[in-house]
Nucleic acid binder design. Structure first.
Lengths: 338, 338
DNA sequence: CTGAAAGCGCTTACAG
DNA sequence: CTGAAAGCGCTTACAG
């Protein structure tokens, strides 16, 4: 099968241990010998067995990145950021999905050096007995006991979500709909709660448009289909607050196909501020997430936790921020050509 | 440290081997004992060491998915598809980037059961001594000797790329620009060669707009910035042929900000047909890639190669297909309101 | 500096 | 059915 250190040693008439020392940079090897060994390793096409190394060192040099599902551009950006970070370290990156509602059924079965959970998985992460960092949106509920002992990077969405609803209101929109997949119609989520509160305060009925939980189908397509049907049955809202930008794009498509102009007839506001938002026609208002900073900090926390398991819980918050673009401007600002 | 099979055995007063048999489903264990062992394993929070298992079985149950870089929505869809496939098997998915020009410097150092290279990496993949499948676009050059012995899923882009250029021409556009990152300005790439040939046949000078090779910056933003500058200096082409849809979105942004209407004043045609294409304003013409089928087939090939290393080289081709939408319609069709 | 060896946590033939 | 054991490919203390 594969070439081992033993093969190299035999070829060179030396001990296997010397090969190991030479290859891992142990100082007790003279440089001439090290060079010969490395050359022979290369010649034979030697590749170290990560399993064997991991077994003896207790380190896999693998980090698992866990999402509730894949698809959203926002997650794509997160994977991209973590890959850039991982590339600068000896760690490799595993990507997997978990069932956020499953107890721990879908959670990765095997050992890695650390895990990063994106989003609501704090319940799941609790059962993992390796270094874990959770990147999650701030919730309306107080921090739970099991969360307080975890390393967490929190994105504060409360202000931004409130600002988004205030903005839509101030722009003069009254019939405002909220669109989200089923699992995000959650009173603990600030998007949802901000929406409900604002509408309740105004004495207006909420208009909730629920999408299926993302599976194999595409989120933007789900959104497009459901919204077209909704508009056909109930007519058009003045504004649509989307729980992410993928839904926002679906809304753009639905409105456009039905001849409805954005924002003149129906305004759209997204969430996550993905890369494309500012280049859409019209540019999509959204809530910007500090992805790069959050990922960098999460990675740093994880590295420190791996170094030192007894570190006190680490915590850092970053603010999400409303970004107003043309897609959510009311009649007065539109007239000003803003 | 972590709980081992030995710990479970000691607690139950049985041998470690019995624990192993019980957990891996070996028939030589009576069901009552198996249940007791499984229960105790659960109670202790046992998780098998993948390193130890891999060391003895020679299987890591890990597959590495390699991209030249991350970022494009098209790659996001590919990751998503492979994750869905992997989830139905015992395999985990690693995601990494490689330097397509490096000899093998950046290639993953460690052993996995198989690798999937997306895009041009055939040179690199050649040096890997584990099962490899390459998913690549058809090239203008003949298949090379080292490629013929590899398992390959090929996307045939020749017809679609020609059809795209013919379409732009037939719609009446004459000043057509081609936009691509530097490494894709490659005569072996059918997008580029189709473009050059069509322009040459028409006796028109090519208008090549070169983007930097994707790094940490975003592709759509690079495209946006470079295009704005180009338009400012050289004015607007009649149509823009983009080597992927991320660039297409950047073009939308640049044109929109400069007050140029699509397609009335400048048409845009993308490549990859990402999820958002049909929901953009106007819907983006593109070339649709059979991502789901290609990924499914690549995964199947890899599983078969792992089962049987002596299988003859596997090969399958899928066709890319031009999808005409509103963004590339010429004046006559626009007038018809199509 | 180097040889002979223990051991990481598993799987799996080999005897009983 | 089960006990005692070999061995996967490494790293690393322990003697010399």
């Amino acid at each position: 099968m594969a070439v081992t250190q033993h093969d190299i040693a035999k070829k060179l008439g030396i001990s296997q241990r010397l090969v190991s020392y030479a290859l891992t940079g142990h100082p007790y090897v003279n440089e001439e010998m090290r060079a010969r060994i490395k050359q022979e390793a290369e010649r034979l096409g030697y590749r170290p067995s990560r399993s064997a190394r991991a077994l003896v060192t207790g380190r896999t040099y693998q980090i698992t990145l866990c999402f509730p599902f894949l698809g959203p551009s926002h997650y794509n950006e997160i994977i991209r950021r973590f890959e850039i970070l991982a590339r600068q370290t000896p760690y490799d990156l595993l990507v997997c999905t978990y069932d956020p509602n499953g107890k721990d059924g879908h959670s990765p079965q095997f050992t890695v050096d650390g895990m990063i959970f994106v989003s609501p998985a704090s319940r799941l992460a609790m059962h993992i007995n390796c270094p874990v960092v959770v990147v999650q949106n701030q919730m309306t509920r107080p921090v739970q006991a099991h969360e307080e002992v975890m390393d967490r990077v929190q994105i504060d969405t409360a202000n931004a979500a409130n600002a988004a609803m205030d903005h839509l209101w101030d722009e003069g929109f009254r019939r405002i709909a909220y669109v989200a997949p089923k699992h995000m119609m959650d009173p603990e989520d600030f998007r949802y709660s901000s929406y409900l509160e604002k509408m309740a305060a105004a004495g207006l009925p909420p208009e909730l448009i629920t999408l299926p939980i993302p599976g194999e189908e595409l989120i933007c397509q789900n959104a497009h289909d459901v919204l077209k049907e909704h508009f056909g049955e109930h007519g058009f809202p003045d504004a649509i607050f989307c729980s992410n930008d993928d839904i926002g794009i679906g809304a753009y498509g639905a409105l456009q196909e039905m001849g409805r102009r954005i924002p003149h007839e129906t305004a759209v506001l997204g969430f996550d501020d993905f890369d494309y938002a500012k280049y859409l026609t019209p540019p999509l208002s959204s809530v910007s997430m500090p992805v790069q900073e959050a990922c960098r900090r999460a990675w740093e926390m994880l590295m420190q936790r791996i170094e030192n398991a007894s570190l006190p819980p680490q915590f850092e918050r970053f603010d999400a921020q409303l970004v107003v673009r043309k897609s959510s401007l009311g009649k007065s600002k539109q007239a000003q050509g803003l």
